[in-house]
Amino acid sequence: AYLPALEEQLDAIWEAAPAVLSVVFGVPSDAVVAEAHRRGIRVVGAATTVAEAVALAGAGVDAVVATGLEAGGHRVSFLRRAEDSLVGVLALVPQVVDAVDVPVIAAGGISDRRGVAAAFALGASAVQVGTAFLATAESAVNDAHRQAIRSTSADETVLTRAMSGRLARGARNRVVRAIEASGTIAPFPMQNWLTGRFRTAAGEQGLGELQSLWMGQGAPLADYPTAAEAFAELLAGVPPRT
């Protein structure tokens, strides 16, 4: 399995002409940002530290996603090891807001109106939500993953390299425990290829204990049957425009 670099995907991106190009695991080149802007495409970068946010802003991105350690899935750190870039949303968002002159999008552990209101109070201009929508009927995950989101407490999620070789937050299920206990985890992308041999079959059979069950620490709050209900709850936390 070959993982193409961003530069090798540009023709497809320009042809698709999205409203926004969002990048992770690094800073987009000056050429990419300039061409996106020439085409009327806004560029968003993701940061896990203030230094990463400053680097992205310096590259000319239009907004920065400040991703706290509470967030589910992979850590998008790129200046230091992901393990050395763990800052919570409460501390990260206001510091990023103070450090950059572009809008900041808060991400990590936000699953209801209270999290949204808190993010705006910290100075964020928007929020990015993942886990709350993963649990809805419209999500592409299977029922085992949905059930795991609704039954996993915040302290039962774990940051692990077991499934992909990159640090990511998800449920500490049977396969994560077994791989971590083995003491052998290959670097990304090799580990991702290895676990992919059984993850696909596990997903098809609904075997949650053998899947990557990515979720953030706000998982216990993500109890929305439909995406519309999730949207309605989150929108209730957006402060009125002045």
Rank of each mutant, 00 (worst) to 15 (best):
L92T: 04
P28E: 00
A16H: 09
V61H: 12
A57H: 05
A99T: 03
A47I: 07
Q211A: 01
R169L: 06
V93C: 09
Q128R: 12
S164C: 00
V89R: 15
D112M: 05
T49F: 11
A31G: 04
R169K: 02
M215Y: 03
A63G: 07
A168Q: 04
A178W: 10
A135F: 04
A148F: 07
A17E: 08
G218L: 05
V141M: 04
Y2S: 15
Q147G: 15
A227T: 08
S77L: 08
G203F: 06
L221D: 04
G109H: 05
V44E: 11
T195Q: 01
A99D: 08
R241Y: 14
V65H: 03
E229Y: 05
D84V: 01
V129E: 03
D11A: 08
S151R: 11
A135E: 03
N173D: 00
I105K: 12
N173L: 01
I41A: 10
V116N: 06
A137R: 13
A63Y: 09
G208M: 13
V102F: 10
V24D: 03
E138F: 06
L21D: 01
V54A: 11
L10R: 00
V238W: 09
G196H: 00
A1C: 13
A36W: 04
F198K: 01
D98Y: 14
P4C: 00
E15L: 10
S153G: 15
A168M: 02
A99F: 12
V24K: 13
R81K: 13
A162F: 01
V65C: 06
L234F: 03
P94F: 14
R146H: 12
V89M: 15
V238G: 00
A228T: 12
E233H: 01
P4H: 03
R199Y: 03
F78L: 07
G73Q: 03
P220Q: 06
A34Y: 08
E8N: 13
R42Y: 14
S164N: 02
